[in-house]
Design a protein around this nucleic acid. Sequence first.
DNA 1: CGACCATTTGATATGGATCAAGCGATGTGG
DNA 2: CCACATCGCTTGATCCATATCAAATGGTCG
Lengths: 228, 228
Amino acid sequence: MLTKTPPAHGASLRSAPMAIDTGTGRGDLGHTIQLMGATMSYLRNAEIYGENEPAEYVYMVVTGAVRTYRVMNDGRRQIGGFFLAGDIFGIEAGGTHHFSAEAIKDSTVLVVKRSVLVTLASQDGSIAHQLWTFTARELERVQGHLLLLIKSAQERVASFLIEMSRRLASVDYIELPMSRQDIADYLGLTIETVSRTMTQLETEAAIALPSSRRIVLRDRKALDRLNS
Amino acid sequence: MLTKTPPAHGASLRSAPMAIDTGTGRGDLGHTIQLMGATMSYLRNAEIYGENEPAEYVYMVVTGAVRTYRVMNDGRRQIGGFFLAGDIFGIEAGGTHHFSAEAIKDSTVLVVKRSVLVTLASQDGSIAHQLWTFTARELERVQGHLLLLIKSAQERVASFLIEMSRRLASVDYIELPMSRQDIADYLGLTIETVSRTMTQLETEAAIALPSSRRIVLRDRKALDRLNS
DNA sequence: CGACCATTTGATATGGATCAAGCGATGTGG
DNA sequence: CCACATCGCTTGATCCATATCAAATGGTCG
């Protein structure tokens, strides 16, 4: 359950935004961030920000993947979310982060000063609306995550795979950026249970596992039935 | 796990706002609603709104208590939150409710048309900020709820009791408005486990149970240790 | 090749679910 | 005003899904 997180706080500032496909519609807060953001790079497992730190920046993933998490006093880690290319994270209405954020693999992100965004919002109703809408969508996401945690292991894993398949713009297989431990800590399971459930789904011909990180969704209907 | 919800859709419109102690600081969206809200009454177990309905109103509890919930396809019910006097619920940035809401006991609420609030927000930056702040706080609440669901039964129940003691402005005992089934569906446990855990906490002298709905927090430190 | 790390697989333990019955309070009709 | 039905809650017995503990396997990199 517990995970060590060898940090390697290697963040280098680069510059200049670039075009990103925001087709999935994250409000257009993504667009706003693209216009104003500076590029930063983080090495695998580098901390992007820590729990209880002041929330100085808002982030959008350009390449790579990010996890947010909290460590409970007993050492258990709960992952709050995974953020992939195009996803925004780190927004806090109150000025403090309630989760930590780390790069799952070498990643680049756009950053915008939160204070700038907040000031803009106070002048521009459209920006204010984007902030609200984004936070509301985040709320929905967390509510969905919460609903996952009362389901069976099979259902959780199936839901996770379906979600990832949707978000990873996958062709005929998905390439997971995160480890089994990350998945376990996201789903509230142990790594062993996640692994066993995967093999079980493979046995039932719902998925195929060419390698541990590469997963073919073979029987979408069966997975959907579990996802329900 | 499953619960029947004998509806009795008795909602009568009354009128006129009244002063409410908003001392705990819900932004001052609460104040805004007090200024504009109309009073509605709901009988115990009456539906206030349903999942997937358009979100026409925003609500603030004046007296009584409200639960929001979703029913999964297998019949399990997950309670999303309990809302007590002064609490606001039913805000949705997208125009649709994602949970249903019911009165836990006979309740009165203030209602404001969502459209009015949204229009106001587009003109008044302070209202826009209130909406954002409120939604962000709601997000934090749900994240806290999510963290609960990975803990042990004792920890969940202890956390629940501590939270309720804080929110119910209790003197030397708390008077729960909700049933064991509601608590179970909020904590992701069965009613039997909630009941057993309560008796266990009583045995350990952490609480006393003068009656099933009335609970004395006898050893706050022990509970805090579980809450952690 | 050898060391390390992630993942899988196996054996066993356990917390909470499930099935079932009992109990106390509340309300209703005779 | 009592007898009885109902409802919410508690308690008991057993089962099962997932956790825990342990070891084997496989892939990656120096």
